[in-house]
């Protein structure tokens, strides 16, 4: 049996099928860890990491370039920057309502009596998880794309 090492790489049907089957479960689990982090082990960092890993798994099966183009730069940049904005925003709104930075209790007029809990959920889900997931995706796509020195720089 001889193998031609120069023939183009084709995606494997077996890997694509397996990832198609497993990815929804891992994504659901990652979202569960994120959204249920207040009442069971987990939270934004853990759940965000799992959501980021799902994208790496897709890239493993379908190729880094198609996955990169499918996700798109806007989504990654938006999630990373948006996460910081949400985190700062919750903190600043608390200051605006007369409290200290991230003093969730001051958010009661906006979020109701459970303001502390909902404020924490907001920064865990909208802030930390979004930042972690998008930075993991971004780092992988950047590394996979390689270093292009561009025009003579």
């Amino acid at each position: 049996m001889s193998v031609d090492p120069d023939r183009p790489y084709t995606e494997s049907l077996i890997i694509m099928t397996a990832v198609r089957m497993v990815a929804p479960f891992v994504l659901t689990y990652g979202l569960f860890i994120t959204f249920h982090g207040a009442d069971s082990p987990g939270g934004g960092f853990q759940g965000g990491a799992l959501v980021g890993v799902v994208v790496l798994m897709l890239a493993f099966a379908f190729g880094a370039r198609p996955t990169r183009e499918w996700i798109g730069n806007d989504v990654i940049t938006g999630l990373a920057a948006g996460g910081v904005v949400v985190f700062v925003g919750v903190g600043l709104v608390a200051i605006g309502l007369g409290g200290a930075f991230l003093e969730y209790g001051r958010l009661e007029p906006l979020l109701g009596p459970d303001a502390v809990k909902w404020g924490m959920e907001a920064i865990e889900i909208g802030g930390v998880a979004a930042i972690v997931a998008s930075v993991i995706m971004g780092l992988f796509f950047l590394t996979a794309a390689g270093f292009d020195r561009g025009d003579g720089s």
Partner: peptide, 20 residues
């Protein structure tokens, strides 16, 4: 589901590398 896939990926990578 995942383990045979991982074994397949390893064997396939070796085949793509041209290992006889």
């Amino acid at each position: 589901v995942t383990n045979p896939t991982a074994a397949h990926a390893a064997a396939r990578a070796a085949y793509e590398e041209g290992i006889e």
